[in-house]
Design a protein around this nucleic acid. Structure first.
Lengths: 331, 331
DNA sequence: AATCGGTGTTGGAGCGCTCCAATCATTGGA
DNA sequence: TCCAATGATTGGAGCGCTCCAACACCGATT
């Protein structure tokens, strides 16, 4: 039994194919008599419109693509929740994809969405080069979440990462720390802003920045923490660029016999569910992930339906969540 | 600047549209001269084939859909890694989707994939009703991972959850526990098997099963643990149906002043990265998530390309990972 | 009775591609 | 030298849908 087409439905309902099309689009200008007949026929045949055909024939697809930078980072799941909710609300279908091993995946995912003719894409924490994103944005609306960009072609929605970093450093300094190291996120989303915010605030306090590089994963965080411990330079507190690398650091410290926060204070970023676990109790920075996802979609819809063309740049305010991994340094 | 079509490329390269099509499909029967000309023209115009058109015209799409049951559960990220790797290897494009608030989302995601004409879908930990899956399987190959099914129309790849549960109970009994409660996963994937395996093993040891229900999330696990504590019935060990609910329980126990494992032992299931954190050190059951994802895709490809029609049922063997949350009961 | 707007409905063109049968070009063997 | 065989290329039909201009029908208006 081959899949029924619109033609089959039309024949069974005794109407034209064009009418069936109107019914499927929920057009108002169809008599309720024929609409019922069409729906009954469709139901009886198990008819479902073929999206490829629909997308080919019409200009827009009412579909949005979303690219997740790292499926393993629980932070993004929260952003996706917001994206999904907003997409539902505006009546858009949602397609997801993720970057996996390398950055090429991210670009491939992006291009794949274009080839599918989606109406817009939201990028979450993209690592891919800005030029690639701008190129894509030339042919389709793009909203970039959690990755600051200075492009006039792309909408962005970001947490104020500089401020977040400042809150962290101020908190640690207030506790009495002077030897505060930072584990950054390499080319990861927001990494630069957090690192800059960290460095600027350190200098404002008359302290020397001390950075170990990583890539926002647990493993790289563990690694960077080990390097910090191996150095001569004293460290009484570590500000990890995100929760995942903070968790990696936590493991390294424990393995090295360093107690947190007695021997060393630790702060993360993102306030993922793991940070909130009582056994972890990680001091961290909260961003409104749900809100970020939601706004990204709103901006896309503004472009698609409202025809906006100038870029919007939204910044949300982070807040410090103090838990048990920070304390005054031992004297 | 409208998007260039195949026609445009053909004209510029001085060949027919059909030839361009052949080049795009990487057909062998094209002279290298014309292939170069076509590729150069495509490059110059920035041509990208329109997938909607391609999918409409051809029978298969070389695209697989994957539905993730819970984006917040890190277990699935691991399964997706395997799915992605296998899809790449076999030359299939991958589209993701997730269930969000309710089960309706899951079904919607599934139907959406069908409407996109994907060649097959893999379901990861689906909660949706079996009848829905079977209905879908009538029109398209479906592989169900981490959710046992007795259907002859669907391929399944599962961890032996009964065995996993047995390993857990045997371990706890060997430690000396007799009051072992189970927090189940409701209608979640594998929940029934784990619960049954738990109950059967308990009885084999002459012990009475003791089940509190939850739904495989942190919050519901916390809740179930609280109910267990509130009951009169003694509990010296808890086997949570997955790591997420184990983490929730861990929090509840800590909040109630119960030390783990001194006052109460705790075991999870899935061996997510959180369980492995030194500060958590959760005893849990490992499944080969990567392998599960990979096999699911392999089974799909067997159907799509090999024309297999009878169902395959693969079972992987779980192993117990003993960490710090289990110890002999206090006497 | 003739005309006018609606409202519903319809055929047909066309979206960008694939696939098939037919055609053209080239080569090797008798 | 001619013919068959092989290889490269092409036009055309058609995938299932949307969208538009045209049309049929009806009660309301003059």
């Amino acid at each position: 039994m081959a899949k029924p087409t619109m033609e089959d439905v039309a024949r069974r309902a005794g109407v034209s194919r064009a009418l069936v099309s109107l019914v499927m689009q929920e057009s108002g200008k169809v008599s309720s008599r024929s609409r019922d007949a069409v729906l009954a026929a469709a139901q009886a045949l198990g008819y479902r419109p073929n999206l490829s055909a629909r997308h080919l024939a019409s200009k827009n697809t009412r579909t949005l693509g979303a690219v997740i930078n790292d499926l393993h980072n629980p932070f993004f799941a929260g952003v996706v929740d917001g994206v999904k909710a907003a997409a539902d609300q505006f009546g858009y279908r949602l397609l997801l994809n993720s970057a996996f091993l390398d950055d090429g995946d991210e670009q491939a995912a992006l291009e794949s969405f274009i080839d599918f003719n989606v109406d817009g894409v939201v990028l979450m924490g993209a690592r891919v080069k800005a030029s690639v994103i701008e190129e894509i944005a030339r042919s389709i609306p793009v909203a970039v979440a959690s990755r600051p960009m200075r492009s006039s072609a792309v909408d962005t929605i970001n947490n104020d990462d500089r401020l977040g970093a400042r809150l962290v450093v101020d908190h640690l300094v207030a506790l009495g720390h002077r030897h505060i190291a930072h584990i950054d996120g390499g080319s990861g989303a927001g990494s630069t802003q957090r690192r800059n915010g960290y460095a600027a605030t350190m200098r404002r306090h008359g302290l020397e920045p001390h950075v170990a590089s990583a890539v926002f994963t647990e493993a790289s965080g563990a690694n960077a923490a080990a390097r910090l411990l191996a150095e001569d330079r004293p460290v009484t507190a570590v500000f990890a660029g995100n929760d995942m690398s903070a968790l990696g650091s936590l493991d390294t410290f424990a393995a090295a016999g360093k107690r947190v926060p007695e021997d060393i204070s630790l702060v993360g970023y993102d306030n993922t569910f793991v940070a909130a676990l009582r056994h972890i109790g990680l001091t961290t920075v909260d961003q409104h992930r749900d809100e970020i996802g939601r706004m990204a979609v709103e901006m896309l819809v503004e472009r698609v339906e409202g025809g906006r063309t100038e870029a919007r740049r939204v910044v949300t305010t982070p807040s410090l969540i103090v838990r048990g991994t920070t304390a005054p340094p031992r004297r």
